[in-house]
């Protein structure tokens, strides 16, 4: 099975406290640690396991810049066979549809049976997988938490739905799946693994390599545009308990007693 997994380089939610930049045009990117979008590691792990069992290869692809090279290498250190960087100034300012259009062109250059994305990335849109499927005219399933190969024409997939219930579907290949966290346990990547792939050549493709007209993607084509970042005026928020830890704990215990939180 030939599998393409879409991955994105994002500010690491665990390592950073994300704040609005001084002028509100972006988040504050000084001292930001980047990593692979959490969901994408689960997608790559699932792809590697499927190939281990059924043969084939895993290609990881990203629409990014020179910095994105490092996340492709990380996923290759996990066990992905190939990397592909899609990079062009013409891609800047793309909205979700633009990113999906770029990925579609790349997908059509290969011969993939299965394409995977993460369920969502840093801005919580969860859109690229579904858009890519529709552009390719492939069937789609989102929030997938189980993949089982039935035969070379179809998969059985589980979707995680409300309440932790699972919706089982049969889906024809080729298809696009967006992967939910928890489907597997992504393997650990050590320094040695990264070193092994440090000098592997990762091809890069731009708009003309992909046969994309300049006005089909990028800022000019984008119909969804971020204006600014801001801190909303919300309600009162929590009453903050202050003082030294001892005082805080005493206050908290009083409150808990009053609210029935201590038995």
């Amino acid at each position: 099975m030939e599998i393409l997994v879409c991955v994105k380089r994002v500010p690491d939610n665990e390592e950073n406290e994300i704040e609005v930049s001084a002028d509100g045009s972006d988040i504050d990117r000084s001292d930001i640690v980047y990593s692979v979008n959490e969901w994408d590691n689960y997608a790559v792990e699932e792809a590697i396991q499927l190939v281990d069992e059924h043969g084939g290869s895993v290609t990881v692809v990203t629409v990014g810049d020179d910095e994105s090279d490092e996340i492709l290498r990380r996923e290759m250190a996990m066990g992905a066979n190939n990397g592909l960087l899609l990079k062009d100034d013409a891609f800047n300012g793309s909205d979700g549809k633009g990113i999906s259009t770029i990925l579609k062109s790349a997908a059509e250059k290969g011969n993939y049976d299965l394409i995977m994305t993460g369920a969502q990335a840093d801005d919580g849109a969860g859109q690229v997988g579904g858009m890519l499927a529709a552009l390719l005219d492939y069937p789609y399933a989102s929030l997938v938490n189980k993949v089982e190969v039935m035969d070379d024409k179809k998969l059985k997939v589980g979707r995680e739905i409300e309440g932790g219930n699972q919706e089982l579907n049969e889906i024809d290949l080729p298809c696009v799946l967006s992967i939910q966290t928890g489907i597997n346990e992504p393997r650990y990547v050590g320094i040695r693994g990264i070193r092994k792939v440090a000098s592997v050549d990762i091809p890069s493709m731009g708009a003309s390599d992909l046969g994309l007209a300049g006005d089909a993607v990028g800022d000019g084509a984008a119909k969804v545009k971020k204006v600014d970042y801001f801190v909303p005026e919300l309600g009162e928020g929590a009453e903050m308990l202050e003082g030294d830890t001892d005082e805080i704990i005493d206050k908290l215990i009083e409150l808990l007693k009053a609210k029935g939180g201590l038995k």
Binding site: N13, I18, D122, D123, G124, K225, V227, Y229, F230, P232
Partner: peptide
């Protein structure tokens, strides 16, 4: 209006609805 990064920041977004 949307949120990003699990609600850590908020954004104004303009959306072209002509089509």
């Amino acid at each position: 209006i949307r949120q990003e990064y699990g609600g850590q920041v908020t954004t104004h977004v303009n959306c072209d609805i002509s089509a």
